[in-house]
Each structure stands twice: as C-alpha cells, then as structure tokens.
C-alpha cells in the first residue's frame, strides 16, 4: 500500500515528481481516484491557500504546488471521466483583453481543477468573443475573468456586455478577480461574484455552480 500522505505533502511542498510517482503507485494498486482527489489533493491545496493568506507562502510556492497538483491530476482525470464522475461545474477562464499577466489566472485555474471543476483555460489576453464562444460552443456555465492592470479592467465590463449581446448572460455566472479588482467594482459591472484570492475563488465557484 503506497503511503498516500506523501501525495498530500508533495503537493504542499510543490514536489511534482513525488506527487506524480505516488499517484501512479496508488492508481496501480487500485486506490480510488476520487479518494486521492478528495482526501489528499484538495486538503493539500486548501493548506497551500491558507499558508499564502498568512504570508508563509508566496507566489512561487503557489505555482509549484499547483504544478504538482496538475501533474497528479493529469493521471487521475481520465479515470474520473471514464468512471462517469461529473465535474462540479465547467468554467471558462482567462485574463481579459489587453492583459498578459496570467499568474493569478493560472493559480485560480489550478485550484479550480483541484476542486473538481472542468476548466477551459482560454489563456491570456482573451477577447470577449472568445469567452462568448466558450459558453456557446463548449458549454461553460461559469466565466472567470482576471485582470492585473487597471487599464484593462474595462475589458471585464466589455466581456459581460458581449455575453449579454449574445443572449447568454442569463445562463452563466461571471466571477472576477485580480489585484485591482474589488467587490464594489464587481457589483458595478454586474458580475455575479468577486474573489480576493485563488483559494477563495474555489469556494465562490462552488457557490455559483450551486446557485
């Protein structure tokens, strides 16, 4: 029996090699993929989030933990899909048009995947049309918008407007985040939710998915 706590620790410590190795071993011994996610990976990422909030961890630690988790998830995801496990929700995520700064978006994307969401990562500098298409053609139910620059915050508003113009606004939830974004801004542009950091983004997405 592999020592599964090592998967938890490998993610917490950002050790991708160990995370992948333990996952492989566990799957070979028929440990349930869902158990790996729920009992080891999600709690590890939660702890990563907590350490970030109390300034024990900084962006590099978050990125390394996310990479370890993604490495492990890459092995688990096909099994989950094959077993017919439904994702918690389908999220289209990207930094808005004009904004190339994607660290925050990548972290949220990784956290959402770890939290059981199917994530359509549209990348950086994503036009409103691309978000619209992700909803229309790929069935995203949540649209997550990220911006670092105040000059690109207007693109968030434009993206929400594009969803309205396409007649899709009713069917999706829009969540926003990024350094200059605030709760007040989120409300002003008519977003459904705002999250201050990557770990609370998962809780927000769960709430929006359930609404």
């Amino acid at each position: 029996m592999p020592e599964l706590w090592k998967l938890h620790d490998a993610i917490l410590n950002g050790d991708a090699k160990t995370a992948v190795a333990v996952t492989q071993e566990a799957l070979a011994e028929n440990v349930s993929p869902l158990e790996l996610v729920q009992k080891y990976m999600v709690p590890a990422m939660d702890q990563v989030g907590q350490r970030f909030e109390c300034e024990e961890y900084f962006v590099p630690e978050l990125l390394l933990a996310a990479r370890a988790m993604k490495g492990s998830l890459a092995l688990i995801r096909p099994l989950l899909v094959a077993s017919g496990a439904e994702p918690v929700g389908r999220v289209a995520i990207g930094t808005v048009k004009g904004d190339l700064h994607d660290i925050g978006k990548n972290l949220v994307s990784a956290m959402l995947e770890g939290g059981g969401f199917e994530v359509i990562d549209l990348g950086a500098d994503v036009s409103p049309e691309k978000f619209v298409n992700a909803v229309k053609e790929r069935g995203a139910k949540i649209v997550a918008l990220s911006a670092l620059l105040t000059v690109t915050m207007g693109s968030m508003k434009n993206t929400i407007q594009a969803l309205k113009d396409a007649g899709l606004r009713e069917g999706v939830k829009v969540m926003v985040g990024g350094a200059p974004v605030t709760e007040q801004f989120a409300q002003e542009i008519g977003a459904d939710g705002y999250s201050e950091n990557a770990s609370s983004a998962v809780a927000l997405a769960r709430k929006l998915a359930a609404a």
Partner: peptide
C-alpha cells in the same frame, strides 16, 4: 517581473 500580483515578499 509580474510580482505586482499578490504578496511577492521580495524581488526575485
């Protein structure tokens, strides 16, 4: 760097 994101703690 794009460390204006969150708490970088230091320059890298």
């Amino acid at each position: 760097t794009q460390l204006s994101f969150g708490n970088s703690g230091e320059g890298f």
